[in-house]
Nucleic acid binder design. Sequence first.
DNA 1: CTCTTGCTTCGATTTCTGTCGAGATAGACC
DNA 2: GGTCTATCTCGACAGAAATCGAAGCAAGAG
Lengths: 122, 122
Amino acid sequence: MSNQTGLLTELPGVAGCCSPLVRKPLTAPQAVDLSRLFKAMGDPVRLRLLSLIASHEGGEACVCDLSGVFDLTGPTISHHLKVLREAGLIAGERRGTWIYYRIQPEVLAQLAAVLRPAGASV
Amino acid sequence: MSNQTGLLTELPGVAGCCSPLVRKPLTAPQAVDLSRLFKAMGDPVRLRLLSLIASHEGGEACVCDLSGVFDLTGPTISHHLKVLREAGLIAGERRGTWIYYRIQPEVLAQLAAVLRPAGASV
DNA sequence: CTCTTGCTTCGATTTCTGTCGAGATAGACC
DNA sequence: GGTCTATCTCGACAGAAATCGAAGCAAGAG
């Protein structure tokens, strides 16, 4: 995924003072890259999964902690986790019988950097 | 739209210290509400539209300023603007022949509030 | 080795989304 | 009034995404 290879950090203004969104128009590739993250978060189930993982004790949760929360089948939860994983928002690791997921704070921070000053600077 | 009626401001921790996403799991309605915003931003064209409007001189742009940038027809641009409008991210106002759009900074700030401390607190 | 459990992948179905062309509406100008 | 321009709405279609059941794979228990 290109957002894991540093493209987002090249957005204008991330290292400067103001929101890249407000300073100058996003280029098409930047927008494609960013929209992948937003799209991954644009589903209520995935947003809750992300929040469940992030707020879970130790900062990680196994799928068994997650799937009971929803009225959805295992494959569906697995699908949503895969979308989050492929967007780079979470990472999974097998440990014995269970697979544990944890959030990737840097990616969330990149998103926040794009967004934060936009509201504050007005 | 419920995110315009203040629901987002009731998220746990927005007025406190830490990211609501990380502090405790989002409830289903909160996630639905939030995901509407993320979904609206989960398209490259809409992200660029948002950025074009925000970075345009005076903080607003008419559709004629926007539609020339893309290889898309008028109806398609109009559709994307409608999605952004219904999400509460932009507002449009007719002034004479043209319709001007500007961003709604509070909504962007709410999104940022949800996101920002998640990365910073790690 | 076989059985069970946890999770994923596969294939099919249904619903949602992006895009367009055609037509409608609103305002400016003559 | 008529006409032109700017924008939106509507209806249709193709491609994408969400969901499920069935099957597969990995790891531990017996």
